[in-house]
Design a protein around this nucleic acid. Structure first.
Lengths: 375, 375
DNA sequence: TGGGATGATGTAACCGTTTTCTCAGGCCTT
DNA sequence: AAGGCCTGAGAAAACGGTTACATCATCCCA
């Protein structure tokens, strides 16, 4: 592999000149530039990234630490990050499966000199100290983290508002005894959604009943299992809010296995709006989270952060709005008569589906929060 | 940030000793090791990756170049790669959206000194020269590429066999006039699937009819659009093979919009077995591709390649087996009476679903190819 | 007791860049 | 014509590690 010296020799200039040409520095004559580029092309030369970042102490790369890159939610987050990073000529180093704090710290460590900063997603509260540790070495943006470190910007999902709006919608349809399938203990998303659920009930004059709160862990099978407890303990349940779509799917299957019909016997709603949701039978009412945008915004935040690192200011905390997506599983029906073809068209033409997902300008069509940085 | 010199000073040793301790070199006394590690911990030191890779000319990172990281297929590939790389202590640098050859080359360039090698996925034939160019700088494993470069190992999907088996299955159900929705022009997966389709027809004594081959581009909307042409041009079609699941979904929606019932009016099958497939109504018969394993195997191949780089040998070409997944959309029904609960349980319990996907030991349950390296 | 083997450690060159000086030469000003 | 100022280019010092080689005890055995 050709080095800067080979090119300098071939072009009859010094290495400094070659360096300047490849760094787009000014003050290189046209003649020199031409000769350097031609020699470089001939030798298939390109500056070595490691050497470059050693002197500049910039790497042009961004690390992404995720708990587990399973499922489409993460894939969309990564896509958003990659897209945003790419337009700023940043490379993305992804690493999944950082369930526990130790892995987080050791990963951050081995990224020293390899990235300029980190986007960290660790929804488990137990990771808070690990994140504080990492923040001493890197500028970090927290993605959907429980931790709120003073030196980190963060972006998260409007979990509370989403759950709150969803439950209010269920209430508006006349449901009173509304159960919830919880997420994993210690997961901040899950907890916020529960709080939104409770708040909506209280506002409707209903005291939350812990007997209606069933365990779950965001997996499809935990939703399936919850059905038994649900049917056994609380026969009078009108509606169920599964705190994510996977569990809603498991629950739906279990209910159908047991001859319970959705939505006539019991209404069902989820959270996330994964791709499958609209294809279920009945299609699932849920809350849409724009994972792609979440990733994009995280990068924007990070770029902004590093720009004005000198400027003294508190951490920026951004909340990504979500929106209610009303479909058949909660028993809602349009008052005006609408043909079957319309609802099917939503599924068929991607370009139109975004607008069509919330049918007929239903109440949930507005963003739930502004998406602006909060103090 | 502390450097090796800071630690050496604090521990009262030379930088060589510190280096040796962090590189797990032998021949460092216990006493020195203890003092170095303690000083290192106190100063929060960790070797700088850029500096290290500059001297060793190893980076401990693996680049992954993908055409577009949209959808769950890619997310699974990345997960497989990350998982396999992680167990070998390799970092993964992902980059998506390399639709055209130029982007591929310039990306590879900027990865100089940043990765030890590349896993490249570029199903478009036009990228072949770009790949050859990259292969001069890096050890590369090709993922599902049309290009077959002499110095690259490659792994791909058994597209031909999958399509062949699927179409044979359709034939065995009595379908004779079987249409196909093609993929994008120049896409090697799409082309191989078409060849498998044609071969199966010929073996059954049916001459492939180009009037039954409809354009498509792997997108849901192109499947939707294909329905019109299909219904107009070829009223006597028994069955349709959409060369991926997305198009099958679009097609299914369009057919339902037009009052055509699947599978009674026309049978339908896809390819890929994306997560949505089993939740469609009717559930989609398709060919399962294990994207996770595809990613894992690519890394294994790459690791093996770099181990015996000195050894002279031809390129390894591995083909990942696929398998037929029979569901309701092609009109197949079990001869024995089976209750509804069974088919629903497949959907509900993930742990069982793998075994349950091919119901009742149907013909397609065996792998279609051995997965061993071919000469 | 001397000398070679052994084992722990230190010295210094090197990896491939960037960047700060320094310098030469040409041009403008006075 | 002399001095000051630009402009382009080169020399050399980092950057933070690794590692070949040198050094120096120590120990063992002849």
């Amino acid at each position: 592999m050709a080095t800067i010296r080979d090119v300098a020799r071939a072009a009859g200039v010094s290495i400094a000149t070659v360096s300047r040409v490849y760094a787009d520095s000014p003050a290189v004559s046209e003649e020199s530039t031409r000769r350097v580029l031609s020699a470089g092309a001939r030798l298939d030369y390109w500056p070595n990234a490691a050497a470059r970042s050693l002197t500049t102490s910039r790497t042009g790369a961004l690390g992404v630490l995720l708990p587990d890159i399973h499922g489409e939610f993460f894939s969309e987050v990564i896509r958003g990050i990659d897209q945003a990073a790419c337009t700023e000529s940043f490379q993305v180093i992804v690493s999944g499966s950082h369930a526990h704090a130790d892995a987080l710290v050791s990963m951050g460590r081995s990224l020293r000199g390899r990235v300029d900063g980190l986007i960290v997603m660790a929804p488990d509260e137990a990771c808070t100290p690990a994140i504080a540790q990492l923040a001493r070495s890197f500028p970090i943006v927290l993605l959907n983290c429980s931790a709120s470190c003073d030196s980190c910007d963060s972006i998260s999902i409007a979990n509370f508002e989403g759950a709150h709006t969803l439950v209010r919608h269920l209430l508006s349809l006349g449901h009173r005894r509304i159960a919830i399938i919880l997420g994993p203990a210690g997961n901040v998303d899950a907890e916020d959604r529960r709080q939104g659920y409770r708040a909506a009930l209280r506002e409707a004059g209903i005291e939350p009943d812990s007997a209606l709160e069933f365990a779950g862990d965001f997996s499809e099978s935990s939703g399936y299992v919850a059905a038994d407890a649900l049917l056994r303990h609380a026969s009078g349940v009108d509606a169920v809010f599964a705190t994510n779509d996977c569990m809603a799917i498991g629950l739906l299957s279990a209910l159908q296995d047991r001859g319970t019909h959705v939505p006539t016997d019991v209404a069902l709603a989820g959270f996330d709006d994964i791709a499958v949701a609209r294809y279920l039978n009945p299609p699932l009412t849920t809350v849409r989270v724009d994972a792609f945008q979440l990733g994009q915004r995280a990068v924007s935040l990070w770029l902004a952060h590093r720009q004005d690192r000198s400027v003294e200011r508190g951490p920026v905390r951004e909340v990504l709005p979500v929106r209610l997506v009303v479909r058949g599983s909660c028993g809602w029906r349009p008052s005006a008569g609408v043909g079957k073809a319309d609802s099917l068209r939503e599924r068929a033409v991607p370009a139109r589906s975004r607008a069509g997902v919330v049918p007929f300008g239903a109440a949930g069509d507005q963003p739930l929060s502004s998406g602006m940085p909060a103090p």
